[in-house]
Simulated assay, not measured.
Amino acid sequence: MIVVTGATGNIGRSLVGRLLQDGAQVRALTRDPSRAGLPAEAETVRADLTDASGLAPLLGGAEALFLNLAAGGERSAVVVLDAAVKAGVRRVVLNSSVAVTDSPADETNFIARMHAAVERAVRASGLEWTFVRGSNYATNALGWAASIRETGVVRDAHPGAQGVPVHEADLADVAAVALLDRTGAHAGQAYVVTGPEVLTVAEQVAEIGRAVGREVRVERISEDAAAEAIAGPHLPKAAARELIAMFGSTVDRPAWPVSDAVERVTGRPARPFAQWAREHAADFS
C-alpha cells in the first residue's frame, strides 16, 4: 500500500494514476473525497493532516508515503511524518524543491527554508527516503490563465527571468519509481528534477500563445505589484517579495542547470514545456 498526500493536486493526481498503472495499491488522502474525481481503483479517504490522532488508520498497512508540503504546509508534513514512523511505514518520498542546496543558502528564501526544514525532519525520522527536488513547475503558468483568457496579456516583473519548467507528470513519474523501489537504488537520493530546456517567462508565454492559436504578450510591472499579485494565505507578502527578487536574479543566468534526472530515473526524456502548453490549452482559452 502506498499513501499519497495531496492526491488531488497537479502532481498527486498524476502520481495516483501512474501508481495504479503499475499495479500498486493506492490510498489517496484528500479533504473532500466526494469531489476528488480520482480513479475508482484508488482508496480515496478523507484526511485532516493536522490531526495526529486521526492519521494512524490512514497510514496503517502502508509501506510507502508520498509527502507533499502543498497538502498542508510544513507543520502538517512533520505531523504526517511522525505518524508514518509510528505506523511502521518504511519509505517516504518527499516532494521537495530545487531551491534546497544543502548549504547556508537554504536560509536565504522562504521556499528553500520551508523545504529544507522538512528534509531535515525526514532524514532524522529513520525512514528510507528519497527527495524529489523539482524546479519551477510548468503548472505555475496556470496563474496567468485568467489574464490570458481575458486580455491576452501576462503581467510580470521579470519577463526575461530564466527557468527550466518541469511537467507535473515528470515529477510524478520520478516519485513513482522511488515509491515502488524494491532494490534500494533510490534510497538516500536527492533528485534535482527539471524540464529539458531553459526558457524565459516571455518564451513560456509565447509557447502558450502557440498552443491556443493567438498572440499572447508580456507586460512588465514592478516587483511590488508582482509580489502583491501572488501573495496569499500560504505565501506571505514578505515571502512573495523574496520570490520575485529571486526570479529577477535569473535574468542574467538560470538559477540551476538542466538536469537529466527524469531520463536517468524513468528511462525516458523529460516532457518539454510546449507539450505541457498543448495539454493545458483549454485552461487558457
Rank of each mutant, 00 (worst) to 15 (best):
R217F: 08
T139P: 10
Y137Q: 12
R182Q: 11
A169M: 04
G184Y: 10
A231H: 00
L199A: 08
E219M: 09
A226K: 01
G213T: 08
G143I: 01
V218E: 02
G134I: 00
G195V: 02
A226L: 06
A145E: 08
T194H: 09
V132K: 09
V218L: 00
E223L: 14
L180R: 13
V193Y: 05
V193F: 04
R214E: 14
T130I: 05
R133F: 10
A227V: 04
T200M: 00
P196A: 07
A187F: 12
A175V: 05
N136K: 11
R210A: 13
D181L: 00
R182S: 12
R214F: 11
P165F: 07
I221P: 05
A190E: 04
L142K: 12
G209T: 09
A229K: 07
H186F: 00
D181C: 01
V132M: 11
G134T: 07
A190Y: 05
R210P: 13
T194W: 06
A176T: 02
L171C: 06
V205N: 00
V192W: 04
A169K: 04
R217E: 11
Q189S: 10
V193S: 02
A169Q: 12
I230P: 09
A231S: 12
D173E: 10
G143A: 05
L199N: 04
F131E: 07
R133I: 09
A178I: 09
T183F: 02
Q189Y: 06
R217G: 11
D170G: 05
P159E: 01
R155H: 11
W144Y: 15
A229N: 08
L179W: 02
T139S: 15
Q204P: 03
G213F: 06
G184P: 01
A187I: 10
G163N: 14
T139A: 15
G184T: 03
V154T: 03
I221L: 09
A231L: 04
A187L: 15
V177H: 02
T151R: 13
G160L: 10
F131W: 08
A146W: 15
G134H: 02
V164S: 15
G213N: 07
A176D: 00
E197V: 04
V212S: 08
V193D: 03
F131G: 02
A178D: 06
I148R: 00
I230W: 01
A229F: 03
I230L: 14
G163C: 09
H186L: 07
Q162A: 11
E219Q: 15
A175S: 15
A202S: 13
L180G: 03
V174Q: 04
H158L: 06
N136G: 12
V198Q: 06
V216R: 04
R210T: 12
E150Q: 14
E168P: 06
D170W: 04
A145G: 07
V177A: 09
V132G: 06
V177N: 06
Q204A: 10
G134D: 07
V193G: 01
G184F: 02
D181I: 06
R149G: 13
V201L: 11
V174T: 00
T194I: 03
E219H: 13
A211S: 13
A231F: 00
E207A: 15
E228I: 10
A229V: 08
A231E: 00
E219C: 12
N136Y: 12
W144V: 05
E219V: 14
F131I: 11
A169I: 09
E215I: 14
L179T: 05
Q189V: 13
G143T: 02
T183L: 09
V192M: 13
S222W: 14
